[in-house]
Structure formats: structure tokens, C-alpha cells
Amino acid sequence: MIPAPFDYAAPATLDEAISLLEQHGDEAKILAGGHSLIPMMKLRFASPEFLIDINNIPGLSYIREEDGYLKIGALTRESDLEHSDIVRNKFPIFTDATKLIADPQVRNMGTVGGNIAHGDAANDHPAVMLALRAEVVATGPGGQRSIPIDEFFYGFYMTALQPSEILTEIRIPIPSASTGNAYHKLERKVGDYATAGVAVQLTLDGSGTCQEIGIGLTNVNPTPLRATRSEDVLRGQKITDELIAQAAKFASEDCSPSSDLRGDEAYKRSMVGVLVKRMIHKALERAR
């Protein structure tokens, strides 16, 4: 399978890339890792007339702690995130998630920014970023702006990014010490999209009360979904098995999975409940 013809540029600076976007508008697509875009182009689900390859732009791949945030450059490969020491120590949720994203070769190309900018509820980082209450930095002709993750996903393949903006960074607030986070997705085989996936981050205070919690769901809704009612059940409470069961029930009710080859709707709702329970327990263990 070969994509439809297109024209191609690999600018050396972000400014050039943005002016190409301004010039070509909707006809252009950004090429980062390409492991969502190129398969779609090969299947002719997408036929952009112009590809702007951002891989030659220096300074878009990094993982660093700065100003109270973990900052991840948009062009950071999944494999870099998978093997990062900062991540392994403070954000084990990314170690959980990256090893379940596709396979090693795809992770060598696929980027964190692309996983989010693609706007696909089946991708794994969106739910993780919801749990971590991340911000997405978009750079356009007017400079940078920061978009809270809750305002980023509009619909299927639709995001808050404007046609001339490029996702350049993801910022994750560094939480206080008594914080745990975890992610798991149920997948039929390596490389499959999630049947259901759940990301949880929670912070406890000195008395063991849940101060803050974030729960994100993968591939069980048209957009990546925050399980708001489940979070509300646990926030400000001492976490008990009864409350966890209630949070799991709410998440399974509030999502909206579609029946497909991975399972019917009822099965997926049930799996969301199971995974919410397991991920809360795992995050609790890591917080203590």
C-alpha cells in the first residue's frame, strides 16, 4: 500500500514549520513519528497534500523538571519516555503506559506529542494526561499558549489545536510526595488498541485522606474521558473498598463504549469497573 501523492518539506525551525502551516492550511499535516498518520495515508483514509516533517527541528525532544512541572517535548519518542529515569522514579504511570503502546519498533518512532495531537480516544496518553491534569502547549504564529488537557479533545480526531498551531510541549504538574499513579489497558494482543484502559493518579495527606485524584479512561468514549463522578466520590475522603467500588460503578456507567470486535458494550463497561478498582489500589500502594 502506497499513500496518495503529496508534497513534502522538512523545515529546520519551528517558525518555518508554522509559516508552512499558515501557507497550506487544512491541506497540510504535521509528520512527527508518523505511526498513526502514515498507516492512515497508506489506507487512503487520509490524503494530505502537504506533509511538514518536524523531525529536523532541534529542541523538541526532552524530558525535564522545571518550574514545578515535568516538561515533555512533543517530539520525545515513546521509547525515550519508557527508559527515562525521571519518569521511572516519579511517574511510574508512564512506564506502565509506554510498555503497552504498540511495540518496541513503533515506540522508537512514535512520539508523545503525536499520540495526543492525533485526537484519538483509543490512544493511551490522553487518558494518562487527564489523570495527571496536564497542560498542552501549542505554538502558532502568535506565539505559545497553554491549553488545559480538559479543554483539548473536541471529538473524533478533533482537538483544540488551530490549523496553524503545532503541539510543542506537554506540562505535567509535579505532585506532592504522597502521590501514586498507575495505568493499565486491557488489550487482546501487543499492538492492539485498548479494549478499555484506565489511568489514575491520587494524592494522600498526612492522615491518609485523598486530597486530589484524577481518573482518565481510554477508548470507551468518543473522546478521552475524565471519570468526574468517580473522582468526586473519593476526593476529600479516606479511601475504603466501598468507596472504590462506588467509583468503579460510576466510571462504568459514565463511559460510552461501542460494541466492536474487542467486546460488546456491557463487557467493556464491566472491564472499566474492574480496571478502575485495580488502578486505584495500585496508585494507593505507590502513594504510601
Binding site: 513534502y8 522538512a10 509528520l31 508518523g34 505511526h35 502514515i38 498507516p39 497508506k42 516533517d53 523531525n55 521509547s79 518496541p104 519498533q105 513503533v106 522508537n108 518512532m109
Partner: peptide, 19 residues
């Protein structure tokens, strides 16, 4: 189709030659 591109294993059916 796995090959090494600058030392990293990648799937060459999903990478453009121009990349």
C-alpha cells in the same frame, strides 16, 4: 521489515524513504 535507522530498530513499511 524491521531495519536499523541510525541504530534504532524501526518498521520500514511505515517510514517514508525521504525521512
Amino acid at each position: 521489515c524491521t531495519i536499523l535507522l541510525d541504530g534504532k530498530s524501526i518498521k520500514s513499511c511505515t517510514v517514508l524513504a525521504i525521512q
